[in-house]
Computed example of a mutant assay.
Amino acid sequence: MVGMKTLLNVSISRSIGKNLGMLFVREFGADSRTTMLKWQNERERKLKLSKEDRRKEYTRPYVPLEDIPTWKEQSKSLPDISESPSFEKLKKKCLYDIKIKEDLDFTDKVSTFVGDITKLEIDAIVNAANSSLMGGGGVDGAIHKAAGPLLKKENLNHDGCPTGEARLSGGYNIPAKYIISTVGPQCENPRELANCYKNSLQMAVDNNIKTIAFPCISTGIYGYPNEDAALVALKTVRNFLEEHGQALDRIIFCLFLEVDVGFYTSFLPVIFPKILPKEQQKKKKEIIEEVNDETES
């Protein structure tokens, strides 16, 4: 009798275990597969839409690329200080560790934009993410909120992201087609910060992304000094354009704080100078020589 009872209990236990296992597979395994199909299908569906059809699905205001002037246009409203001694001194401060090819004019390739990066209707926006890619505060939280829950679902498949690297996801509910997530350094580390920009740009080139916008990576709660971060961003982008200029149409520096606007406005004419006519180049050379003489004396 005891043996029969034991066999019955084992049989019942096995039956319950089997049913629970099947239930787990149904509830979790199937749900996981469905979720994966859902973000993949939605990402592909969105990418196949024309601009007009994508706009029909927008639920909030957007900013088209044609509404963002290039730096060539933006700089026309600023005073020209390129022939002043103070400008040459600024160059020494900004370009002590980089030699730019001044015969290459990229002023029509870059822009600044003051506002909400999630509203930009371009190919890709860059997210200053944390290593989990699961969302956080600041611009990271704003992008996740605007893109919707499928961004987090897709990011689960990336298995995180190390500092300085980049990961590509769909844009979902934002006007941008893609979101490139990168993880900035949590301390002042120019090499790792430069890698954020370089790897994001390379990700763009590899995926035929022509227009891309960057926030000010690591300057929020990660505490990177704004001035130094601006210089790293601008110089890294400049170097990349000198090598891959034909692969990208526009790189937008999306700014939010007034302090960042000030730094970018000061540094852009130095790192992205306009090509001057020959007469102006001659005058500029004389000014440089004058500054050098003053420095030596």
Rank of each mutant, 00 (worst) to 15 (best):
S181M: 08
A128N: 01
S297M: 12
L156H: 10
S132N: 11
A124E: 13
P149K: 05
V110W: 07
C254T: 14
C161W: 07
I117V: 13
T35K: 12
A128T: 01
M22K: 10
K5R: 06
T219V: 04
G21M: 14
L201W: 07
V259Y: 01
K56S: 06
E83D: 13
Y197M: 06
Y264A: 00
D140T: 13
M1V: 05
N157D: 14
K235Q: 11
Y178A: 08
Y224A: 03
V110I: 15
A176I: 10
S75G: 02
P269N: 02
I12P: 00
E290I: 00
L133Y: 04
A194R: 09
A230L: 05
F24L: 12
K278D: 15
E102D: 15
T295Y: 12
S111C: 14
N127D: 14
Y224Q: 03
N189S: 11
P175E: 05
R191E: 14
V25C: 11
N199T: 06
K119T: 06
R33S: 04
G135Q: 06
K18Q: 07
T182E: 07
Y172A: 05
N239K: 14
E83T: 05
G245C: 01
Q40F: 11
N226E: 08
M36F: 13
Q246A: 15
T112L: 09
G164R: 08
S32F: 15
A204D: 08
I143A: 09
N19V: 08
Q40N: 13
T118F: 07
P185F: 04
A30M: 11
N9I: 12
C187R: 02
E88G: 00
G160I: 05
D293G: 04
P64I: 07
V63F: 01
M36K: 13
K284Y: 15
N199Y: 01
K72S: 11
D140P: 09
A146N: 09
T35G: 00
R26H: 09
C161M: 11
K235F: 05
Q202G: 06
L276Y: 04
I271S: 02
E294L: 13
L104I: 14
S266E: 14
D293V: 13
S218M: 01
E258Y: 02
F272H: 10
V291M: 13
Y178M: 12
Y96M: 03
R26I: 07
D228E: 14
